[in-house]
């Protein structure tokens, strides 16, 4: 029982990083209705910008984090311009494939600039695990969890309580109608992309600093973990992204403990497949509603 609970705790801590990744994903998807495959790689580039700042200037944690976020945002804007803004609406496949080739491009750029592939990344905190009764917590995971919580609350406030949030929800619901209401749809989409990239940058910093190292493969990892967490939670839902991330983390932690490491990803994908077949809307899904609306709109 203690094992099981400890696994759950580990999973929740791990899952909060997945949740962080999924928030950015779901924000972009919610507004654009398109999948940005180079989300992971763009925050990976951000983390390498952070690494560069560390290697060149031996900068402190704040400067590295800031550099990571700025890097992620700049690359995010590049992706938005090239793969989303420039491709007309209705060509969602083209956008997705475009974001995929840009992923390949970003990965190669990083490999050219950083030929050693694996680099040290300075940890944010380096303390021994905290003991609480029979349970252990790693401090960096607690920080991650706290950040995920704060960011979710802030995002919720932004979406529900501000004019920008209102505009964003309007665009997400019906871009044409929003345009007629005088909303600058392009600007709202860009800003959503910037926010998502900034979130991704923070997530990247926290995850990479907890690992203590960074490789170009982080891009692939981040895209897939974020994507799975988003799908489990329900596409376009912010609380869903966090819940999906936590669920993914817990399932992974339990599979590692009870089945072995080689079953970790297998269980995650199996869970995802089951969700897609039996409950495609995810935990917070509104699929039935969406489907109905889509059917009405199309006829």
């Amino acid at each position: 029982m203690v094992d099981f609970i400890q696994n759950c705790l580990d999973g929740i801590m791990l899952g909060s990083s997945y949740g962080l990744l999924a928030i950015g994903f779901t924000l972009i998807f919610g507004v654009m209705r398109r999948l940005n495959l180079s989300y992971g790689p763009s925050i990976m580039v951000g983390a390498f910008v952070g690494t560069l700042v560390y290697l060149e200037f031996q900068a402190n944690a704040v400067a590295i984090a800031a550099a990571t976020v700025v890097g992620a945002v700049i690359v995010g804007i590049y992706v938005e311009r090239l793969c989303f803004r420039a491709i007309r609406r209705g060509a969602a496949v083209a956008s997705m494939v475009s974001s995929f080739v840009i992923w390949m491009q970003l990965e190669e750029i990083v490999t050219v600039v950083f030929p050693d592939r694996t680099y040290f990344f300075p940890p944010l905190v380096s303390a021994a695990p905290v003991e609480l009764g029979p349970f252990f917590f790693k401090l960096e995971n607690v920080v991650m969890f706290a950040c995920a919580a704060v960011m979710t609350v802030w995002l919720h406030w932004l979406l529900q309580r501000t004019r920008f949030g209102l505009a964003l929800r309007a665009v997400s619901e019906d871009p044409r109608a929003a345009l007629f209401m005088g909303i600058n749809v392009g600007a709202v989409m860009s800003l959503a992309f910037v926010i998502a990239s900034a979130f991704g940058g923070v997530a990247a910093y926290l995850i990479v600093s907890a690992d203590g190292q960074i490789t170009p493969l982080f891009g692939l990892w981040a895209t897939f973990k974020g994507l799975i967490a988003m799908m489990l939670g329900g596409m376009g839902s912010i609380p869903g992204a966090i819940l999906g991330g936590l669920l993914l983390g817990v399932v992974e932690a339990q599979s590692i403990w009870y089945l072995g490491t080689e079953y970790r990803d297998l269980s995650a994908y199996f869970l995802l497949f089951l969700f897609l077949v039996f409950r495609p809307g995810g935990l917070m899904g509104q699929l039935a509603v969406e489907r109905e609306q889509a059917a009405t709109r199309r006829v």
Binding site: L82, C83, A86, I87, R88, A91, V93, A94, S95, V97, S98, V101, I102, W103, M104, Q105, L106, E107, E108, I109, V112
Partner: peptide, 16 residues
């Protein structure tokens, strides 16, 4: 991949 990625991204803008 840097060249190819850029080329394809531009191609998809012109011909989705």
């Amino acid at each position: 991949m840097i060249v190819f990625g850029g080329l394809v991204a531009v191609l998809l803008i012109v011909r989705p």
